[in-house]
Amino acid sequence: MKNSMVLTLLPLLAVPAAAQQATADAPGFSVKGDGSWELICHVVGRGEDQPGIVLSPRRSSYYSAALLHADCQSTATAPSDLAITISGAKKCPFKSASADACTTTIHKGRVVQFEFSANGTR
């Protein structure tokens, strides 16, 4: 009985890792920073329009294979530096980003606004 219970649970334990891999390959963005901050995004995807995606310390990333375009803005000045990373962008919107990574740091006290289209969009 004990062995059959372990074998039954093994496929369930593998699901989060598989979901994380699918998420990592999808276009999207993430934010890291201390304190209380919010980034509100209007996301347009294949067959979906989500005007109120809110990122915060509780939910600091959004990835979707259906993502076509995102327009984001912080609601107030951040209490600490925020590191923003975008993956799968057709063109990185950050002037200070390196050639190999679409990442920028928004310094404490600044309001941020950015938008991008995902690869494969017109």
Rank of each mutant, 00 (worst) to 15 (best):
D34I: 00
P93T: 14
T77K: 11
T121L: 02
S74T: 15
I106R: 11
N3C: 03
K32A: 13
S60R: 07
G120R: 03
K2I: 13
A26P: 03
L7R: 12
E48A: 09
G52C: 00
R59F: 10
T23K: 11
Y63D: 13
S30I: 01
E48L: 04
L9Y: 02
F29E: 04
T75V: 11
C92G: 11
P51V: 04
V6P: 00
T77R: 10
H107K: 15
A66E: 12
D100K: 15
A17H: 06
P27S: 04
H69E: 14
F116K: 07
F116H: 06
N3P: 01
T23P: 00
A22D: 08
A24Q: 09
G120C: 05
A22I: 06
I84W: 02
M5G: 00
P16R: 03
V54N: 08
Q20F: 02
S117I: 02
I106A: 14
S4K: 08
D34N: 10
K90G: 07
Q20M: 06
G45R: 04
D71L: 14
D100A: 13
I86E: 06
T75G: 14
A97Q: 12
E48M: 06
F94W: 12
V43N: 01
L7W: 01
S117L: 07
M1I: 11
T104D: 14
P79E: 03
D100T: 15
Q21T: 08
A97M: 12
T105H: 04
Y63K: 09
S87W: 06
K108Y: 07
A65E: 14
Q73K: 14
T8W: 01
K2G: 13
Q20K: 09
R58L: 10
S36I: 08
V31C: 03
Q50D: 08
A18G: 05
G33S: 02
T77Y: 06
I86R: 05
D49H: 03
A76Y: 11
C92P: 08
G52N: 15
D34P: 00
G109F: 05
K95H: 12
E115Q: 12
K91S: 14
A24F: 02
G88R: 04
T77I: 06
P57H: 06
G47F: 00
T105Y: 04
A76C: 02
I86W: 07
I86Y: 05
A89W: 06
V6H: 00
L67A: 06
A83H: 12
K2V: 13
E115T: 10
